[in-house]
C-alpha cells in the first residue's frame, strides 16, 4: 500500500516528478508533492467541490482521483489562472462582486467555472446557475458568485474569442 511509485505530473504547464504511493489522491499530491496548496480539500468524498481542478479540459474532483491516474494529462489549478501576476477576468470578477468571504471554496468555484467555459464558451445563464450548485460555499450564500460568473459570461459573449485563464 505504501510502496511509492515514480511518475510525472504536468500541472499548469510545468512537469513535476513525484514519488508517491498509488493510493494518494490527486488533491493531496498537488498540495504536498507539487506544493500547490491553492487546491483545497473540504470533504474528501466528492461533494463539496473545494478540490475541483481542470484535467484535460474537464473540471474534476481531485479528491476522487488518484494522482497516478493524472499521469500524461494536463492538470490546471487555481495557481495557473493569473498570467504574469494579472488576474484572470473571472478572478477579478470574484473580487469586484464580493463573491468570496473566507475564500476556502473559491479555488474550487473558479476551476469549476473555468472548466465549463472551456468546454462551452457560450454556456447559457441557466446552465451556469445549475453548474454552481455542484460546489458548496458556507459563507456567501452564492448570490455574489452567480453575479461574478454572469458578468464574465456576458463579457465572454461580447468578446467570444477570449477564453478565461487559458495558459498562453
Amino acid at each position: 500500500m505504501s510502496e511509492k511509485i515514480e511518475f510525472s505530473l504536468k500541472v499548469n504547464g510545468t512537469d513535476f516528478s513525484i514519488a508517491c504511493p498509488p493510493r494518494k489522491t490527486l488533491a493531496d499530491a498537488l498540495r504536498e508533492d507539487c506544493r500547490l496548496t491553492g487546491t483545497h480539500v473540504g470533504c474528501e468524498h466528492g461533494v463539496c467541490g473545494a478540490c475541483t481542478v481542470v484535467v484535460d479540459g474537464r473540471a474534476v474532483r481531485a479528491c476522487l482521483m488518484f494522482a497516478v491516474q493524472a499521469q500524461g494529462s494536463e492538470v490546471r489549478t487555481v495557481e495557473g489562472l493569473a498570467q504574469n501576476d494579472v488576474l484572470s477576468p473571472l478572478q477579478q470578477a470574484f473580487i469586484d462582486n464580493h463573491a468570496l468571504q473566507c475564500g476556502f471554496c473559491t479555488p474550487g468555484f473558479l476551476m469549476l467555472i473555468n472548466g465549463a467555459f472551456e468546454r462551452d464558451p457560450d454556456i447559457c445563464e441557466d446552465e451556469l446557475t445549475e453548474l454552481l450548485s455542484s460546489n458548496l460555499c458556507r459563507c456567501t450564500g452564492y448570490r455574489n458568485i452567480a453575479r461574478a460568473v454572469l458578468q464574465v459570461a456576458d463579457k465572454l459573449k461580447a468578446r467570444s474569442e477570449l477564453a478565461v485563464g487559458k495558459p498562453s
Binding site: 496548496t37 483545497h40 473580487i95 468570496l100 475564500g103
Partner: peptide, 17 residues
Amino acid sequence: PRLEDRPLVAGEGRFVG
C-alpha cells in the same frame, strides 16, 4: 473592495493545511 481577496483568488492563501 476587500483587502483580503487577492491571495485568496490566486490560490496563494495560507490556511493551516
